[in-house]
Computed example of a mutant assay.
Amino acid sequence: MNNTVSGSELGSVIVGVDGSEPARQAALWAAGEAERRRRPLHIVYGADTDGRALYVSVETIERVRGAGRELLDGIAAAVKEQHPGLVATTEFSRGDPVASLHRAAGLRGTIVVGNRGLGGFNSLMLGSVGLKVAAGARTPVIVVRGTDNAAENGMMLVGVRDEHDLDCVRHAAREAELRKAELRLLHVWNVLESVGSVVTMMDDVTEIADEYVRHLTAVTDQIRQEFPGLTVRADAEKGMSVAGVLVEASRHADLLVMGGRRASAYLGPTLGRHTHSLVHHSHCPVLLIPRHTDKHGGES
């Protein structure tokens, strides 16, 4: 299996802005991430003026361009004030904001978006642009949430199912090394998904639980071998909702890392049922690692 993220280094950081306060906070968070990675920050404003050209006047387009460039200058100045040593570049794109961010990320960049844009209607909900960026991403995406008054917890949290999540956990381990943080691997066993509507014997339930623990242990042992200086903790919990347990655990994390959907359909290669819930309700930023699938829907 080859996931999107590989190699020993984390990619460049690209952040999308739109004039909203969540986007501004995302840009400042992304600046800190870029500084940790020792990478430049690229700030993108996708105005979609090309898509509007047939419907609005030239004067309106020019006003949009002027406002967009002013916005980028203001964000860059705020970033420079907080991170004076960071190299930050800006881009005013005439194209669709989703396509602009995907293009700017290239093959290895990490895209950062706020939890709600100008079109958002609820502070808990991810804006439509951010949702589309995350759903269609082929590179990592970070949805910045829970940063208002948040303290550093010194812990990276990863939702783990089995060995297919190993590349995702490696990415989280690199993030933990940058922050000198602990890495917590959490497997959540949804009993209802395991037994369905059939009443099983206790021996069957115990066997299922033991199998999950074996998978988690295999991943944990491999990460400890590859990252000997990292503190790694592994836990398995039962719950009625995988997303619910992870959301609660995110209260104590600096970053929640999740692998993308394993099969096609739903909202794209990154957003499945659980990850969709997490980007709306997590108490900390969520890093989504997409998977590539082959034409038959399996992992490539």
Results as ranks from 00 to 15, higher is better:
G127I: 02
S128A: 07
S128M: 00
S128H: 01
V129N: 01
V129D: 03
G130I: 00
L131A: 09
V133W: 06
A134I: 13
A134R: 13
A135G: 15
G136W: 08
R138I: 00
R138A: 08
T139D: 12
V141N: 11
V143R: 04
V143D: 04
V143Y: 05
R145V: 04
G146D: 04
G146V: 03
G146A: 02
G146K: 00
D148I: 01
D148V: 01
E152V: 03
M155H: 03
L157C: 06
V158I: 04
V158A: 08
G159N: 07
D162Q: 10
H164V: 13
H164C: 10
D167A: 14
D167F: 10
R170W: 01
H171C: 14
A172P: 13
A173P: 09
R174G: 00
E175R: 13
A176V: 04
A176G: 05
E177V: 00
L178W: 03
R179K: 07
K180P: 02
A181I: 01
A181Q: 05
E182Y: 02
L183P: 03
L183M: 01
L183V: 01
R184V: 03
R184Q: 07
H187S: 11
W189L: 13
N190P: 10
V191P: 10
E193W: 07
E193I: 04
V195I: 15
S197R: 14
V198L: 15
T200H: 12
M201T: 15
M201E: 15
D203T: 15
D204E: 14
V205K: 14
V205P: 10
E207G: 10
E207V: 09
E207T: 15
E211W: 08
E211R: 09
E211P: 03
V213T: 02
R214M: 06
R214L: 06
H215W: 09
T217L: 01
V219C: 01
V219L: 00
